[in-house]
Design a protein around this nucleic acid. Sequence first.
DNA 1: CAAAAAATTGACTTATACGTAAAAGTCAAT
DNA 2: ATTGACTTTTACGTATAAGTCAATTTTTTG
Lengths: 128, 128
Amino acid sequence: MDKFYTITELTREFGVSTRTLRFYEDEGLIHPERRGRTRLFRPADRRLIQEILRGRRIGFTIAEIRDIIRVYKDPPGEVGQLELLMAKVSEKREELRQKRRDIEETLTELDNVEEACLTRLAEIGVGT
Amino acid sequence: MDKFYTITELTREFGVSTRTLRFYEDEGLIHPERRGRTRLFRPADRRLIQEILRGRRIGFTIAEIRDIIRVYKDPPGEVGQLELLMAKVSEKREELRQKRRDIEETLTELDNVEEACLTRLAEIGVGT
DNA sequence: CAAAAAATTGACTTATACGTAAAAGTCAAT
DNA sequence: ATTGACTTTTACGTATAAGTCAATTTTTTG
């Protein structure tokens, strides 16, 4: 085994550019190995990229994504740091719940838009 | 009645700056009345702002928000336009559903982070 | 009605998250 | 040894969505 991915394999899989993945490396989110100067992405890197993109889709900034990743690799040792982190987590959770509500409401609204379109289409159809 | 709001009332209510609301006007999202040069926001404007901010929270661009708003004011009259719009609506709906899944997963992940923090705190507490 | 407070405009600046171009380097296959 | 596909670095560019600042009105209040 010891499977690895090239950068373009991953860009194709995830629909992002090479620039994006290199940018994530510059930002310290991923640390692919090197063979010479070429990046080798391991499955672990791949999973990390999935997480990063998920965070991106819901609107987290790079800094926020970095924070979340850091917790997994290296959970803080100081009580103060831990408490700070937990406060941040609570805050993020509230934010996400708000976002979920926003999405529910907007989905309903999209249903209305669609219905309005259908009604309009029917009107036009009848008129001709 | 005929209630209206000043710009600062609304900035306070929604936690945005006056510049932001003026920016939304420049972008054609809202059209508050004027008394002289001063903007008068009607309840309808207020509701519109709520919608705009909701769209913003879930990551819609100004252009997308403008599109959605336009549908309500002035639903397209041509069949082609209507079909295009419905395609867009479907696309947005899929996007929002993906986002909702992302949020669910991230909420679960935040639970894990929190638990890890509590475990770590307990360890530290026991050790001292 | 004068002073203070609030609102307006325009120009400029900022942060985020990449895009793009240039100029080489890498590597497998022919 | 060359081709072609891919990858690298560096550096500057760009779009979005406002924020900041300064100079003026405008409105409100004592």
